[in-house]
């Protein structure tokens, strides 16, 4: 942790950034914003840090304070690459303080992040525990799966904590809030809830880095990672998409090619 703190302190002291977004050294490891070099002693990182701090990069209050540095474990590094590929980060304005487990890996700009990911994390795969959960679900019959999701979605209160947690959810006006015309029922009830969660996951397909922040944020404990993991696999198997490695890659759901498989259109 000493190395992380020192690197953060150095960035602030040399005025290379105006803010370091990290995790605070206290229970729950909440987000912490170091604005002064002496604040950096309060930074910490460990495996219990569930928030994806790249979500702050879309927040107007943070964008007003660029350049900033973000404490970033591998999934968050990938989020930074996704945001770069989607032209969401002003060039040179975001630095990553890369961490993994107990180690501090160094300070990287967007290009450096992509290089680090390719060199060290190119075989990053979804966690085995998550894949097991997915397998368990896929073994159920379609009717059982429908019943499972119906029960889960019935708990959703539409608090949108899942959306707020995700760096990929940066739209200034989410489709769930559009009412002329209205696409998704706003009532926190079966049909609208179903559409909401499925739509949220679909909009992340080929963009989700499986960081787990959405599921961790859900106050009702919805197993959102099951949706994300299935879509991640589809994106990989059907389109060879591995989001968060190539800052030049066109986002899967934001691009179209004449060579795409169109056999579904009849």
């Amino acid at each position: 942790m000493k190395a992380l703190r020192e690197a953060a302190e150095k960035l602030l002291r040399e005025k290379r950034v105006s803010l370091v977004i990290g995790y605070e050294d206290r229970k729950g490891r909440p987000a912490f914003f170091a604005a002064k070099p002496e604040d950096c002693g309060r930074l910490a990182y460990d495996a219990s840090c569930r928030q994806n701090l790249a979500a702050y990069l879309g927040k107007p209050e943070i964008r007003a304070r660029l350049p900033v540095a973000v404490v970033a474990p591998p999934a968050v590094l990938r989020s930074i690459v996704v945001l770069t590929a989607e032209s969401q980060l002003p060039p040179g304005q975001v630095l990553a303080l890369a961490v993994d487990g107990d180690s501090f890996l160094g300070t990287f700009d967007a290009a450096g992040v992509a290089e680090l990911l390719r060199a060290k994390y190119s075989t990053l795969a979804p966690e085995p525990a998550l894949l097991e959960r997915v397998q368990g679900l896929l073994q159920k019959s379609p009717a059982e799966r429908a019943a499972f999701w119906e029960a889960e979605f019935s708990k959703c209160t539409r608090c949108y904590a899942c959306r707020a947690a995700c760096p990929g959810c940066y739209c200034s006006r989410c489709i769930v809030e559009k009412n002329a015309p209205q696409w998704i029922s706003t009532a926190a009830l079966g049909h609208g809830n179903y559409t909401w969660s499925v739509m949220r996951a679909f909009h992340q397909s080929g963009r989700c880095t499986l960081c787990g922040a959405c599921e961790a944020a859900c106050p009702q404990g919805l197993p959102l990672m099951l949706l994300n993991a299935v879509l991640d696999r589809e994106a990989l198997e059907e389109f060879g998409s591995r989001p968060g490695y190539d800052p030049e890659a066109k986002p899967l759901i934001g691009s179209w090619s004449a060579d795409d498989d169109h056999s579904y259109m009849r």
Binding site: F32, T157, C159, A161, A217, P219
Partner: peptide, 14 residues
């Protein structure tokens, strides 16, 4: 400064 961490969801109010 106090609101910097807030991500603007409804978890608290709900």
């Amino acid at each position: 400064e106090a609101a910097l961490a807030c991500l603007g969801c409804g978890a608290c109010a709900y």
